[in-house]
Amino acid sequence: MPQHLSYLKETTSQTAGPYVHIGLAPKAAGFEIYQKELGENIAGSKAEGEQIRVEGYIIDGTGTTLKDALIEVWQANAEGIYAHSEGGGEVEDGFRGWGRVITNFKTGKWGFNTIKPGSTLARNSGMQAPHINLWLVARGINIGLNTRIYFDDEVRANSIDPVLNLIEWENRRHTLMAKRSTDNDIPIYRFDIRLQGKDETVFFDV
């Protein structure tokens, strides 16, 4: 009889369901219960760097936009530092790097304002191109989906990013590229998430 390993097992994931908003973003869903809604302000008022907006849709396998999803955002500041004890240093007062956004109940559109993150350290050596980490939950999604937003104007950094280069299918890498437009007050990056079908977004097992 071999020895027994005493590790516990991770609690299993279950779908966030159709009413995730009342738990995680009640105010955004028109339900006033808490004094403080979490995740409304990602960068704070003192963050250095370029102010940007990111927006898009989430599209299912039939081409229909999701109107009941929630996205969480996790990003570094403009210096590439995360607001965490292992994040690589200090960040500006009020910079959290974390936020929540829900898809609009009528249109399905989502969007958030933040500052553009800087390059972050890669494993072992080198740098990761600027990116925003996303975690997506909704009815019909059994376990939260992890993906990353990269920026299409960071051509050089993207070309040597170890995660983008890890994706064997080069023709799928563009699904992680947010497209910049500057027709507005602040630059808008458009990022649509396709759960399946043509141009299915790359999702990661992190």
Partner: peptide
């Protein structure tokens, strides 16, 4: 509901980087 909302391709396995081992603090 999972049928049309589930990715068809396999997830890309990613070793932890600083982006994964950090997270929000409350």
């Amino acid at each position: 509901s999972s049928i049309t909302r589930s990715p068809r391709f396999s997830l890309i396995s990613l070793e932890n980087s600083i982006s994964e081992i950090t997270g929000p603090v409350f």
